[in-house]
């Protein structure tokens, strides 16, 4: 990314993080997470990607691109096995696993593909992840409410961590604004 791109990207990411914080429940609210699994999964992926790219950590970027570079392997499954090259990404994806394993309605993704020609590919990645993960979890260990509980717990913890990270970023980048501003 050149300088102009990075400056724009950071502004867009800050707005996106605000969305993530407002839309996704913080830690400890499993029921709320279960209610919005697909938004949680998409938002989580987007946030992790943005954080990786902005940190300019080559390993983080490689982790962010895992799905694109390895079309036949699931980022989520690789992370669960601890195979992603970036430890933070491993942990993040492990937490986020709950989003897909709690029986996600893939319907909303199909509708996204219908309505957003521009997102066919991105939505396709997410759907593939979802399918692979469901095969693994729902297929093998399904039915166990306890498994799902644990996964939801992990997601919930992960979202809490993400919120903390976003807050830290907000405080680090907050600059005093002249005048009363927008609010």
């Amino acid at each position: 990314m050149n300088k102009a791109e990075l400056s724009f990207f950071q502004k867009a990411a800050d707005n996106f993080f605000k969305f993530a914080k407002e839309t996704l429940p913080a830690a400890g609210t499993n029921a709320a997470v279960a209610a919005v699994p697909m938004i949680a999964m998409a938002t989580y992926s987007g946030a992790m990607f943005a954080i990786g790219v902005m940190n300019r950590d080559p390993l983080a970027v490689e982790a962010a691109y895992h799905t694109i570079n390895n079309p036949e392997s699931s980022t989520w499954l690789a992370a669960l096995a601890g195979e992603l090259p970036f430890e933070a990404a491993n942990r993040a994806y492990q937490y986020a696993t709950g989003a897909v394993a709690t029986g996600v309605a893939v319907g909303s993704l199909s509708k996204v593909i219908e309505k957003f020609g521009s997102l066919r590919e991105e939505a396709g990645h997410l759907r593939k992840e979802n399918e692979m993960l469901r095969r693994e979890y729902v297929g093998n260990r399904a039915g166990s409410d306890r498994t799902q509980d644990t996964l939801a717990n992990r997601l919930s913890t992960g979202l809490g961590n993400m919120n903390t990270k976003i807050e830290q970023r907000e405080q680090a980048t907050r600059t005093p604004k002249p005048g009363p501003g927008m609010r």
Binding site: A13, A35, V36, I39, V61, L109, K111, V112, F116
Partner: peptide
């Protein structure tokens, strides 16, 4: 623009899209 720039913005767009489709259909639980 660079690929990372484009991919990053589209990933944000995807999360927004999922949200909008749910709200437009009246199925959002938020």
């Amino acid at each position: 623009a660079s690929q990372q720039f484009i991919d990053g913005l589209l990933k944000m767009g995807l999360a927004f899209a999922v949200f909008l489709v749910d709200v437009a259909d009246g199925t959002s639980q938020l």
